[in-house]
Design a protein around this nucleic acid. Structure first.
Lengths: 246, 246
DNA sequence: AACATTTAATGAAGCTAATTCAATATCTGC
DNA sequence: GCAGATATTGAATTAGCTTCATTAAATGTT
């Protein structure tokens, strides 16, 4: 006790527990300080291990941060896909995803920022597990757009991947001030305006209502024809022949 | 010459020249390696000074990089505003800016990436000279949108600042793969699709559909007349049989 | 229960790249 | 040509990530 030579009794934990301890600590530190200002010394201390020990489980600081990000992504994606399946209608489905994305950013600004800033720009991003996860996430947008185009609801002028970029890019730009702690944003309102913007851009020209009027008119005219015919027939006793049109 | 003690004769340059030398070297190194992988040792060597000397002119590595970015921004903005003034029509003006932005990214990917990744996310971004420069740059979009709304060309449903975010955010997302050297993009084609998307979202519905509705209404009224006539005729003559189908 | 083996965990040492600073060489004015 | 001022140097310092030889907890063996 008197000597500094005293080595604290140390527990040998199962690797699993150690890893989860470290990752929990890392996530807390990252959420507090962001990637650049987070030091593994602090992570180690909070996790109750010594700096060097981290390297038994993670090959580098970056590897650790990446695993934390992956973990977070997987957590986010849980239930997301199932919930989306329960939402009907193109517009509602788009809004659901946009809203979900904004909620995530609002809840975990530091982690979101870290992904935007550290991982997505990295040279090897496309060979990253994070990329795969992200792709599964954003893919749903493309599916929705594709389906809407097939159903004639959306114009086919814009590739689904492009629409996806406009949505996620637009959202990201919109929330940067918040991510910098220099501003705020309202999740619901932002979701509305983004959704409106996209639907306005994609919706097949307003000809739709016009077409419906025209179609209804055609039916009315057909009825009028028949009525006239019937009336005439009735007038001339027997000359009836109703020319049907669809 | 034989001894290593020989100190190379050194020129005392005017500060201005030194600064510009260092900045030129820094820009080249940054364009080659990006911010993280650029070392001031390399910058110093290329600029023909010793590492420590950089700190006479720049307070830190970050300060140097920031100055380089500012310099680049100012260079970009030169003539941009004047050229824009020569472009007429909302759509053309929007496309000009979008095209200009894409061109810059294409020409200087490393610097663009650096700004996106390093500076915009920084906590104090809004108090940065770079922010001011960028604002002057993007402000033009808001002006154009505002004017178009005033002229009834664009719907007023979307705040100009929001439109600006959608445009620059969408562009940025679209070009990330290129910035990572993992893909490419076509400036002209991308400018077109982005411009189309935005104009589609904002354009007030053309008057044509309205005219068509009016025309359709005239027809409906005519049909109503006929129906009334037919009904009267049928009623007075015989009790007609209305074999209606959907 | 003593001993041997394995390996988790340690903590000090090493490395790289940024930053500081006392010493020095060049410039300028007299 | 001298003195003071200051630009430039290069060695020393610092910070934070990473490595590794050493230590000791766990496990197996007789």
């Amino acid at each position: 006790m008197a000597g500094s030579r005293q080595r604290r009794t140390v527990q040998r934990m199962p690797a699993e527990k150690r890893v989860s301890d470290i990752m929990r600590a890392a996530r807390a530190v990252l959420a507090e300080h962001g990637a650049h200002e987070s030091f593994i010394s602090e992570v180690a201390e909070r996790a109750g291990v010594v700096e060097g020990s981290l390297y038994r489980f993670f090959s580098s600081k970056r590897d650790l941060i990446e695993k934390v990000a992956e973990d977070w992504y997987e957590e986010m994606l849980t239930d997301y896909s199932a919930h989306l399946d329960g939402v009907r209608g193109t517009r509602n489905r788009l809004r659901f995803i946009i809203h979900h994305h904004l909620s995530i950013i609002k809840k975990e600004p530091a982690l979101a920022r870290m992904v935007f800033q550290e991982f997505r720009p990295a040279r090897n991003y496309r060979s990253t597990r994070l990329f795969t996860l992200n792709q599964a996430y954003t893919q749903r947008i493309a599916e929705i757009v594709k389906a809407a185009i097939r159903d004639g609801e959306f114009s086919g002028d814009f590739p689904p991947a492009f629409v996806r970029d406009m949505i996620f890019g637009g959202i990201e730009h919109r929330v940067w001030a918040f991510l910098r702690s220099e501003g705020d944003f309202d999740v619901g309102q932002t979701a509305n305006v983004v959704t409106d913007f996209v639907c306005r851009a994609l919706s097949v020209a307003e000809s739709e209502p016009v077409d419906r009027v025209t179609a209804a008119l055609s039916r009315i005219e057909a009825v009028a024809d028949r009525l006239e015919g019937a009336a005439e027939a009735g007038a001339s006793k027997v000359r009836g022949k109703p020319g049907l049109k669809t």
